[in-house]
């Protein structure tokens, strides 16, 4: 009886980052903030990103399995529909079995935004914002910002087109300037405020936003018309709803830097 009470309480709290045991965060990189120009910005002005930590790798199947063992309300048989659609962990055989043909070290996919958010909060972390994610993703192996390098953009686009990259292990793409792996070429990643992206089907009647899906397709108002890789990412984010679980979509966590 007491156990069920505890379970009830935990399922209430789980979404909102209270009392989850912090895990050792040895695999995070410190990102030094700065300004950057997002594809769709605050009226084309630069955005300032503060210092923060981010996971070096996306969350793997193995790590996610540990999580659902600890918080069973996120098992595929238990999760409630409001928080995850029918594709949630759809490749997993059952609540605690990753199929043989999927590596435990491959990124976990078919995860909803709510699930990703809960996972991070239970590590005492959070999802990164779109701006933080894009800020880190500009870096190639040697430069903080390689987006003006055509070859870099082309390499990213190629990796976005390549099928079934979600089967590769985390860490299998390159290590960027910040020491972070797999920002491109493995899986798409959830961001905390993905719903700030207006390239979307549902806001078509908005006074000034309905251009986004037509032939001009988001080109109006974009800061860099040649950054096709960014267009692909923003379009992807725009197609999402928070309970969607998608085969090529995983996540990683981030964290504020506490001031002393």
């Amino acid at each position: 009886m007491i156990g069920s009470v505890k379970y009830y309480l935990c399922s209430l709290l789980i979404l909102f980052s209270i009392n989850c045991n912090a895990k050792e965060n040895s695999k995070i990189a410190k990102i030094y903030g700065g300004t950057y120009t997002p594809l769709y910005g605050k009226k084309l002005s630069d955005v300032t990103v503060k210092d923060f930590y981010i996971d070096i790798y996306p969350v793997s199947n193995k790590q996610y399995l540990e999580f659902v063992k600890k918080y069973p309300e996120w098992k595929k048989s238990k999760v409630i529909e409001l928080f995850a659609d029918d594709n949630y962990l759809s490749m997993w055989i059952d609540d605690e079995t990753i199929p043989k043909n999927i590596s435990p070290d491959a990124p976990v996919v078919d995860i909803s935004w709510y699930a990703a958010k809960a996972y991070c909060e239970c590590q005492d972390m959070r999802l990164s914002t779109v701006d933080e994610w894009e800020y880190v993703a500009r870096a190639d192996e040697t430069d903080i910002d390689a987006t003006k390098d055509r070859l870099y953009t082309e390499r990213i686009i190629k990796s976005y087109e390549t099928p079934r990259t979600y089967t590769h292990n985390i860490g299998s793409t390159y290590r960027n300037y910040w020491g972070v792996f797999d920002m491109h070429g493995l899986v798409w990643e959830w961001t905390l405020d993905f719903n700030s992206i207006m390239i979307s089907g549902e806001n078509r009647s908005n006074n000034d936003l309905d251009r986004n899906l037509f032939c001009a397709a988001g080109s109006i108002g974009a800061s860099d018309l040649m950054n096709y890789a960014a267009f692909m990412r923003y379009a992807f984010r725009g197609s999402l709803k928070a309970n969607f679980c998608i085969r090529n979509l995983g996540f990683r966590c981030a964290k504020d830097i506490e001031k002393n």
Binding site: N87, D110, S200, G201, R204, D210, L213, F214, F236, G238, S239, L240, K241, F244, C245, I246, R247, N248, L249
Partner: peptide
Amino acid sequence: ATSSFVAPGH
């Protein structure tokens, strides 16, 4: 186009 925007697996 506006009504048919669809994510993978949907």
